[in-house]
Write a protein that binds this DNA or RNA. Structure first.
Lengths: 233, 233, 233, 233
DNA sequence: GTTTAACCGAGACGGTACGTCCTGTCTTGTA
DNA sequence: TACAAGACAGGACGTACCGTCTCGGTTAAAC
């Protein structure tokens, strides 16, 4: 679908409204100040007044463009953190996921983890901001995982009948669980263990014989086995 | 040394400190008011002043016993929510887990879910309160799961070499993930799908014929109990 | 260069600082509420919160403009009580003082006396406010007395060598003494008696017969009247 | 007069009330702590809790014996400051007064002045304490002055028709005026000047030759006691 | 080339809640 | 009964931010 076309129709190409156009300096200064504060002091230190002061902007300017503290926090985060996801597109899908998880866990162990934690918490009191965060950050990342999963299915690494959403939640849920609840650390061994368990659960499996013999006939099927789908068993 | 003596000296846990003893009425009134507010209005509405007013207590009384808003929130939650976990102890371990997950998801879909979400967020700005929440609420629940997992291992349902912590995170992480991030609902189908994936990953599996490179079996001695495993096979 | 130009550039004393200018409504409302409370309930009832509530203003607004409870009290008093002193400028200086003292005592017997008492007490715990009170209220009144004294000296009613400050203190000290310590009432007879004593002490007098003559003749005054000093007796 | 006798009759001879008798240690400790705080930090620092803590006493003990903060302050002051007044009983009455004023001004320039100022202010919000202060401290001092004045009258130094109360207020009012209002310092020169003015006003004076209009002599029979005046002679 | 509408900074303002200090009352155990 | 200890309801403190509201002054398209 020609997106360009849509755009030229939808957006007002010359649609110049009268009056002074929005200056970019204020916007950028605010977002940078916002992110800096978020990273340095967390949500607690993140106040509109603080951001305004640090950005040399007026509170009103902030309120003009962002409806709430939370929205601003999310926007600040996105402006900094959006442009980076990466999956190794070579090798097995399982290994791609494994290595991406490790990378994520490394990132989340640092300042970014703190910030993400804060943003999720912030989302708690501003559903709109929460939605924005999910839509722009979470969803996107999940989409990338989904593609790798699909690749794995195509390659026969994974069962074909898996529910993508459930699978992604199973893979990344534990990471967020620990990040957010904080009952354990995000170390590499743990990450590998979790990945192993879930990836094992995604593999095409012998039919549930349940009596002990797991004779795995031809485990390595290239394609999913719809016939095995009989899940409920 | 006379034990009796030691005892008579040592054993005065309720040692009657001087001064007026703490009255229980205030404590109870405060916790009840706190929980009520938490449930009705969430963290946003949860203010010390609000709780004090509703409880008919003085702010100072609250501050005397709880160091922060967050601590109070956690305490209020625990005073209400602690006395209930339940695993069906009959049937297969997998099914016990499955049904418990469904029950949890049901609970978390209601008011309790909102509250737990708030508490996790609150923990974000008060590490002490967070620790209390984890220690008293999370840890306990995890312990229950751990026991069921062990039962499953003993019965040959699960692999013997699983890392308990990772397994528990794999099972319940997704639930918290959705609860906290809010990118999807906690419906039953999804719950079952997640459970299926993870439980499948915990099942004893045919040795990795694939490359053999992942033969990690038994390496993780600490967590798994090879001696007990007795190898379901 | 045209003077007009210079003027138009230079003459901007009220220089319009940036930002929303201070509104007068709040200021007036606060001062009025403050004075009302001060008059009704005295210092004890005079709380910032009370004033704010009564004025329909925010506490912060008060704190923005007055550094302390005491400052506000003084300001409130001054805004009401400043514009009134009056000395009869006819007749003898002594009589002018006498009648002014009577008027003062009358005023101080009423609500104003209570307020002044409170303000002096307040000054006790805020030196800055005390200074403001002295500077704007006390000093001004004393200046008026000083002028009358000078008139009296010029007219030969009073000695020329009197120390103005001491004289004023001698005249009005007793009034404040009774007002503040409260060991006696401010009645008219007493006032007259005090005035008589002190004014007698200010009159040109026969040289001290006691130990010879301390002829202090014309030492200090601008317009002393040595002729009168010369012993009427 | 045998005071001891009176006492043994008046006080409860064996009148032992039941229960633990009042210990003097607490009383003394409280008064000492109270005075210390009063002297160190003024009224602002003078809190019941502070005194209790410093005295190692319980708040209740203080409330049992003193009805208010102000009463305690006055009591503490009196317990320390009562036992000292002194007039030189030799020389002229005028000089006795002069030197006593100087001594008073010296004392009031130090810590005692601060404390007296505080007590007068305190009296403002507790009439009972104010009365106690006046009755026990002020009145007593004034009585001493009254005696010296009488001596002066008897010796012909002062007019016989002076109103004692007015005279005392005229003499000491200025000192309190400056002490309490703080518009000037209590230095020696000023003190002498004031004393000179007022004492001059008390001297027997030549009949008003000027216009004769002020011939008021002897009109004020009520206050002066001509009959008593004759006495000393 | 003037209008004119929006942008932007500054800061006043009414508010809410904070966490602290002190008040005056009470309840308890010990002397 | 006196006393120390300390819980408790409550009132006010002074502070930090909130979100809204004037203001003065840009700034650039539209008239």
């Amino acid at each position: 679908m020609p997106t360009a076309n849509v755009k030229s129709v939808d957006d007002q190409p010359p649609a110049r409204r009268p009056g002074r156009p929005r200056g970019d300096e204020a916007r950028v200064a605010i977002l940078e100040a916002a992110y800096a504060i978020l990273e340095e002091g967390g949500l607690a230190a993140f106040t509109i007044e603080g951001v305004a002061a640090r950005a040399g902007a007026a509170k009103t300017t902030i309120y003009r463009w962002w409806p709430s503290r939370e929205s601003l926090a999310v926007a600040a985060f996105l402006s900094v953190a959006l442009p980076r996801i990466s999956f190794s597109s070579t090798g097995s899908a399982a290994n791609a996921i494994r290595s991406q998880m490790l990378r994520l866990v490394t990132v989340y162990s640092g300042k970014t983890g703190r910030v993400v934690r804060d943003l999720v918490a912030a989302g708690n009191s501003d559903p709109v901001a929460a939605a924005a965060f999910v839509e722009s950050y979470v969803r996107q990342r999940r989409q990338a995982v989904r593609e790798v999963l699909q690749r794995g299915i195509d390659a026969g690494e994974f069962r074909a009948d898996i529910d993508f959403e459930a699978a992604i939640d199973a893979l990344y849920g534990p990471v967020f669980y620990r990040l957010l609840v904080g009952h354990g650390t995000l170390d590499k061994t743990w990450t590998k263990d979790v990945a192993d368990i879930v990836l094992a659960g995604l593999k095409p499996q012998a039919p549930e014989i349940k009596n002990g013999d797991q004779s795995r006939t031809g485990t390595k099927g290239t394609k999913a086995r719809p016939d095995r789908v009989s899940r409920g068993s």
